[in-house]
Design a binder for these strands. Structure first.
Lengths: 246, 246
DNA sequence: CCTTCCGTTAGGCTC
DNA sequence: GAGCCTAGCGGAAGG
């Protein structure tokens, strides 16, 4: 495909706010927060209506270079090359794609209004615990969620156990780290200062980093294994129940 | 395009290990570490030779769903749909794309052997300081890089200043945080325990978070503004010099 | 606007 | 293989 012809088609796509797919032989230069160069190779360029731009190599999940939505995109011919330039300000960044050859340019006007439904985020894990507190332990009763503690931040779930002891629960959807344990200790300290009584501290996560295990004993924190998957099942069961009751 | 025809073309692409681009009306279901569903919409599907797979909506820099390299990809017809399935084990995950309509399928055999050259990573900033220590301060002399400190971790650069004082330098390519300052203090404490002498602590970064500024005074840490860009220039000059000497 | 925190983080490195 | 850290992280939520 001739570069002049291709550049016209790309400009048309930009005007029409189409999704633009370009396949060809291109080099890439990026300068901004960091800087990178990539010599010529056969790649896939995607330009979206919102100004996002992605350069994909034949291998790998991630784009090799990109620019997020809102970038200003220009196309021009210089010597025997076609250049696509994507600029953004704040941070000042420029991505320049230099085409040596263009194999194909495709334009699409796509419509997609569906909403992504994502399950078992950390938020969902909290909802699962509130829906069925026994997954933390038998007799656990939540009192508050997102309780503020001094300057430290927010407790995921604050409650009482079967014996009437205060309990602070910290939720993580990934393995808990030493930093997580320390944050939880901050909360416990804050509550102790506030209410004059030291609560139990429970970290609920799918696992815990080995390096953090010793901190559990040192600081008297309890670990409760709780996976996102388990929470998904709890929410599903609860969802099913609600549907049945309605 | 007929679904049967499309599925044959995609299978051919998989056999030939081609880059496959599919545009059409599709729904998406993902289940693995988390789970998500997305109703039908017009999207772009990319399947790469290495088994990476990406679903892109008309807007946004990020794929809405994906699977990293190494996924096992299957295509089959069921009722009036074509399904593309990408599975991986460890973690067990499945991505299922259900096509209602297919507008286009494109196959490409791309060759790309260029090497990405990235400048001014944190590693490069360290190299720049080692190449020209005066960018930290006049008279600074590095002794060691990546020096281990007890259990705390590794010092980026350990050296002495013009007066013969020990200096610990911590490098960040982004604004320094309070956590960075505290980590640096850990190192300084470690060195003091080890060598019986408290070194100066310098954090070299393009900036520092407002909330961390007070910690500088509290803990006696010095801040030296050093941008990736500046380091890039130092390395370029040094590269030029080396080229001249050789 | 800046800061903090989560992510199907991914990817790379070490043990 | 698992654990741990970095990233042009991106993105969202909160101040």
């Amino acid at each position: 495909m001739l570069l002049a012809e291709a550049s016209e088609k790309i400009r048309a796509g930009l005007r029409e706010r189409a999704l633009i797919i370009v396949v060809g032989l291109m080099g890439v230069a990026y300068e901004g927060r960091a800087a990178s160069t990539l010599g010529p190779g056969e790649r896939l360029l995607i330009i979206k209506q919102d100004g996002s731009i992605l350069v994909h190599r034949p291998l790998g999940y991630e784009p090799v270079n990109w620019q997020p939505p809102g970038s200003k995109i220009d196309v021009y011919l210089v010597d025997d090359y076609m250049v696509v330039e994507a600029r953004r300000i704040s941070p000042q960044e420029i991505l320049r794609i230099i085409f040596h050859e263009i194999y194909e340019v495709y334009l699409f006007k796509l419509s997609d209004s569906a909403e992504l439904a994502m399950y078992a985020t950390e938020e969902d894990m909290k909802r699962a615990i509130l829906a069925d507190p026994s997954i933390i332990e038998e007799g656990f009763r939540p009192i508050e969620d997102e309780r503020k503690v001094g300057e430290s931040g927010f407790i995921d779930i604050f409650g009482v156990d079967g014996e009437g002891n205060l309990v602070v629960v910290e939720i993580k959807r990934r393995n808990a780290t030493a930093a997580d344990v320390k944050q939880l200790i901050n909360y416990v300290d804050g509550i102790e200062r506030e209410l004059g009584k030291r609560p139990r501290a429970i970290i609920a996560a799918p696992g815990i980093q080995k390096s953090a295990v010793k901190d559990l004993k040192v600081y008297g924190v309890e670990f409760k294994c709780l996976t996102p998957k388990k929470c998904r099942e709890v929410l599903r069961k609860k969802g099913g129940l609600e549907r049945f009751i309605d």
